[in-house]
Computed example of a mutant assay.
Amino acid sequence: MTDCGCAKAKAELEEYLHRELSIQDDADVAEHIKNCDDCSSEHLVGLALTLKVRQACQEQAPEELLEAVRSRLSNA
């Protein structure tokens, strides 16, 4: 493994968070994040945002709202 540097780690952070990097690139970014406070902080922010988006995407609209939307769509 090699330290890929801040520029590469930050550029590939999104892909790293979603496990979309090659094995080698993933290992390089992980190694860099482990040793760089600035990139580690960005990684933690990215993790928090990813978790919040994932949670928001799982929320369901209340049944009353769904029924009202369906009713308006069928009457349109």
Rank of each mutant, 00 (worst) to 15 (best):
E15G: 14
E15L: 10
S22T: 11
N35H: 06
L49S: 04
V53N: 05
H43V: 00
D38M: 14
V53G: 03
N35Q: 07
D28E: 14
V45W: 02
H32M: 04
A9I: 03
L47K: 10
C4K: 00
D38L: 12
T50C: 13
A48N: 05
L13E: 14
D28V: 00
N35W: 00
H32Y: 02
S40N: 11
D26C: 09
K8M: 05
E12N: 14
H18C: 15
C4Q: 00
R19K: 15
V45M: 12
D25P: 07
S40R: 09
K34Y: 02
H18N: 14
A30M: 12
R19C: 13
H43M: 13
D28F: 01
S41K: 13
G46M: 11
A48L: 10
D38I: 07
H32P: 07
K8H: 04
A48C: 06
A30G: 12
V53Y: 04
C36A: 05
I23Q: 14
G5T: 01
A30F: 08
D26T: 02
D28S: 11
S41H: 14
A9C: 14
D38T: 08
A48D: 06
K8W: 00
C36R: 00
A30Y: 03
A7V: 14
V29T: 02
S22W: 02
T50H: 11
L51K: 08
K34Q: 06
A48R: 06
A30H: 13
I33L: 13
K34M: 07
H32A: 07
A27F: 05
L21F: 03
V45L: 10
Q24T: 15
S22V: 03
D26Q: 10
C4P: 03
E42I: 02
A7K: 12
D37I: 01
V53R: 10
K8F: 08
E42N: 11
V29P: 05
E12K: 10
R54N: 10
G46E: 08
E20I: 00
D37P: 09
K52M: 15
V53F: 03
Y16P: 10
S40Y: 10
E12I: 01
L13S: 15
K52T: 04
E42R: 09
G46Y: 09
L47E: 14
L21S: 07
V53E: 07
A7D: 15
E20V: 01
C39Y: 00
K34H: 07
N35P: 01
R54I: 02
C6Q: 03
L17N: 08
L51D: 13
C6I: 00
L47M: 15
S22N: 06
L51T: 01
L17K: 13
D3G: 01
A7G: 15
